Amino acid sequence: MLWASQTGNAEGAANSCAKKLHAVGYDVRLACMDSYSITDLSKERLVLMVASTFGAGDPPDNGEGFWQALQDNALNTISTLKRNWRPCKKNGLLTRLDTAFSRDQAEKIYVQDRMLEHGAELWAWLQEGAHFYICGDASRMAKEVESMLKRIIQQHGGMWSAEAEAYVKEMAKSKRYARDVY
């Protein structure tokens, strides 16, 4: 499991995930992205990555070299990563992976667009105890994602605005909602 974080939240999330995977029988090795060579990806049976990135698109300092190598080797790396996600999906550790690219294509797709598309499922996950993390730009992205989260809670939870606000505050209090924003 590879991690990179500007504030430490992604490292903590990676450690927590690694403990859970270890508890169900996986031999998990943790590494900071910048201490891991991208050329070793093809040797791995399974790779999970956790990162808190800037909303401006810049990687965290301790993942900058890794992200640059990913960009430099994008086509080969994407193929490798897709192969590595399949075992996670097969054994139920990863049930779904959605992506949102706002810079890499003509049509800009944002996280909040994906959230809205799958609002009912996101609400169901929250009802089952899912954790929600926002990482990135505090001035725009984080506000828009949090606003969409509250909208989904309102819409699918049948709540008023104040009730959705209270729901998110309770999630934060119980450590199911966290922000790594700057």
Score class of each variant (00 low, 15 high):
Tyr182Gly: 11
Ala124Trp: 00
Ala69Gly: 05
Tyr177Trp: 13
Leu48Gly: 09
Tyr36Gly: 01
Ser174Gln: 03
Asn84Asp: 10
Met33Asp: 01
Met171Thr: 07
Glu107Pro: 03
Cys17Gln: 09
Glu107Ser: 09
Thr80Lys: 01
Ser37Met: 04
Ala74Asn: 11
Lys143Trp: 13
Trp125Met: 06
Ala13Cys: 07
Arg86Lys: 15
Cys32Leu: 00
Glu128Tyr: 01
Ile38Leu: 14
Leu2Thr: 02
Leu94Arg: 03
Gly8Ser: 06
Val47His: 00
Gly158Gln: 14
Ser147Ile: 01
Ala51Phe: 03
Ala164Thr: 08
Thr7Ala: 09
Gln112Trp: 13
Lys175Thr: 13
Arg151Glu: 08
Glu11Gln: 11
Thr39Asp: 13
Glu64Met: 12
Cys135Met: 11
Glu117Pro: 03
Gly129Tyr: 08
Ser42Val: 06
Leu81Tyr: 13
Leu75Gly: 09
Cys32Asn: 14
Tyr110Ser: 10
Lys89Tyr: 11
Asn15Ile: 05
Leu70Gly: 02
Cys17Ala: 15
Gly8Glu: 00
Trp3Thr: 04
Trp125Ile: 00
Arg179Glu: 13
Leu97Arg: 11
Ala18Glu: 11
Asp113Gly: 08
Leu41Val: 02
Tyr182Pro: 11
Ala130Ser: 12
Leu46Trp: 06
Glu11Arg: 13
Lys173Asp: 05
Asn84Ala: 14
Tyr167Cys: 08
Ile152Glu: 00
His131Gln: 11
Ala100Pro: 01
Leu94Val: 13
Ala13Asn: 04
Glu44Cys: 14
Lys90Ser: 09
Trp123Asp: 06
Lys173Ser: 09
Trp67Glu: 02
Asn62Met: 02
Asn76Val: 12
Trp67Val: 15
Ala18Lys: 11
Gly119Arg: 06
Ser42Arg: 05
His22Lys: 15
Val50Ser: 00
Met33Pro: 03
Glu44Ala: 12
Asp58Asn: 15
Leu149Met: 11
Trp125Arg: 12
Thr77Gln: 12
Asn73Arg: 06
Asp72Phe: 12
Gly8Pro: 05
Ser5Phe: 02
Ala69Cys: 10
Ala10Gln: 00
Ile38Val: 14
Thr95Asn: 06
Ala10Phe: 03
Asp40Asn: 10
Leu21Ile: 03
Arg45Phe: 07
Ile152Lys: 03
Ala4Asp: 01
Ala100Met: 09
Lys173Trp: 05
Glu64Val: 14
Arg140Gly: 07
Ala69Ile: 06
Phe66Lys: 07
Cys17Leu: 10
Ala31Asp: 12
Ile78Arg: 15
Met1Ile: 10
Trp160Asp: 14
Asp40Val: 02
Lys143Gln: 12
Trp67Leu: 12
Ala124Asp: 08
Thr95Lys: 07
Lys150Met: 10
Trp67Phe: 15
Leu70Cys: 13
Asp180Gln: 00
Arg45Gln: 12
Ile134Asn: 04
Ala106Ile: 11
Asp137Phe: 05
Lys43Met: 02
Thr39Cys: 05
Glu165Ala: 11
Ile153Asp: 08
Ala18Asn: 10
Asp180Gly: 03
Lys173Met: 05
Cys17Ile: 12
Gly129Asp: 07
Asp34Ser: 08
Gln112Asp: 13
Arg179Lys: 15
Glu44Lys: 06
Leu149Pro: 02
Arg114Ser: 09
Val145Asn: 10
Ala51Asp: 04
Leu21Met: 14
Ser174Met: 05
Lys19Phe: 01
Gly129Trp: 05
